[in-house]
Write a protein that binds this DNA or RNA. Structure first.
Lengths: 225, 225
DNA sequence: CTTTTATGATAGTTTTACTATTAAATATTA
DNA sequence: TAATATTTAATAGTAAAACTATCATAAAAG
């Protein structure tokens, strides 16, 4: 028996549940590829429709607009990452090792786990790195926040914050450090590939160096005194 | 005699130099206010033109498109900040005090210094916090980078990196730590105001807490061993 | 006083971001 | 298997965004 991984997504993010139908799953899969290829600004529902052999109006039956789709994708990413972290740190004894594992999971594009055939997690990671923050960097952030669109990001930070406190119960900024780990993992990745003089890393995809930088940063603060 | 502060901006960012004419300066001043008010996505040249009593075509004579204008504004911000840092840390003896000053300048909206009448730095800071990263999070980063559009950001990180090395010449990641300080100062600010459960800070504009978090983070890493 | 330069006024094009309608295909169920 | 929902494709259309082009006038410079 194959266990199918299915995330419960916030219903207000879509009009029709994209995971329920063939077209919906195609929308999810192809939108990630197309955003990866064109960037979010040049990505349109029309192009996506042409890509999957459907029509613009067809996509609009699933998502109100492309920004909601982006929020959906980032929510999916954070939900899936939280699941991965829980799963992969499950049998790790020491909280510090857990935190190291978390940092690695955030920095590397995670290997496709085949459980979710319709989403390519290897592509999802660079898409989130380059486009993820656009999901919340808008004037509708407050409204969207009230609708709990960013709950998966918060849940992830809560989880990481708990591990941080396990490492050092006296550490004063567990949540801020958690969101900092997430953001730094992502934008140092972006900088390394696109604006490498904003980092100390060679362009030769030395993602492990980002992990080392983050480990150094995080554990110095946590271990202090 | 009043010393007028004038930054030499990258010529490829504009079509006509906006600092040279009355209309150009109005474009700079009002675009910051309008982006602040509407967010970058809803900001258009047409609305800006109506705002300043000019025409859409009139704006296009200064900037090729709104993205170039955003890059211009962020470049201006980083250039101006570098100037402020040089000026305000000029007579500070210890590099650690310099670094503390830098962190404060990055986190707080700097008081308007009246030297640049046409740009309101108090508004500029929240605009950069919310919109600044959109200047480089695009598919044209590489092309824009080759045109040196992000040079002011790099110069700032170089400067901060040097101060970090003055604090600890053995520290391994001065540039990455520098860009991390910049980014963390900005997005923790954004989170505190808009997604406060991603931080440990109360919404009551306790920007000083961000400064404390950053000081803790930075100096733990630098001072280690 | 003439010529350059900057602006304003107007008009037009293409693309994006949608909404609406109808018909055909597919699945469900009676 | 016929009746009936449900889903999708095809088409059409609108409003606004993102530009480009032209021409007249006003102000500044030579």
């Amino acid at each position: 028996m194959k266990v199918q991984f299915k995330m419960k997504m916030n219903k207000r993010l879509y009009i029709r549940d994209p995971e329920d139908t063939e077209l919906g799953r195609k929308i999810l899969k192809q939108s990630i590829e197309l955003i990866y290829k064109l960037g979010f600004e040049s990505f349109t529902f029309k192009k996506l429709a042409e890509d999957i052999g459907s029509t613009e109006a067809g996509i609009y039956r699933y998502f109100e607009n492309k920004h909601k789709l982006l929020i959906y994708i980032t929510a999916w990413y954070f939900g899936w990452l939280t699941y991965q972290i829980n799963y992969q740190t499950n049998n790790i004894k020491y909280p510090k090792d857990k935190l190291r594992k978390i940092i690695r999971l955030l920095t590397f594009p995670v290997e496709d786990d085949k459980q979710t055939s319709y989403i390519d997690e290897g592509l999802l990671h660079p898409v989130i790195v380059a486009e993820g923050s656009k999901a919340y960097l808008t004037k509708q952030v407050e409204k969207n926040n009230k609708q709990r669109f960013f709950q998966p990001y918060k849940d992830l930070c809560t989880l990481i914050g708990e591990v941080i406190l396990e490492c050092n119960p006296k550490y004063k900024y567990p949540i801020s450090l958690a969101s900092t780990i997430v953001e730094v993992a992502h934008f140092q990745n972006f900088f390394m590939h696109n604006l490498s003089s904003l980092t100390d890393f060679s362009k030769n995809d030395k993602v492990t160096e980002i992990v080392e930088f983050l480990n150094d940063l995080v554990f110095s603060s946590i271990d202090k005194d």
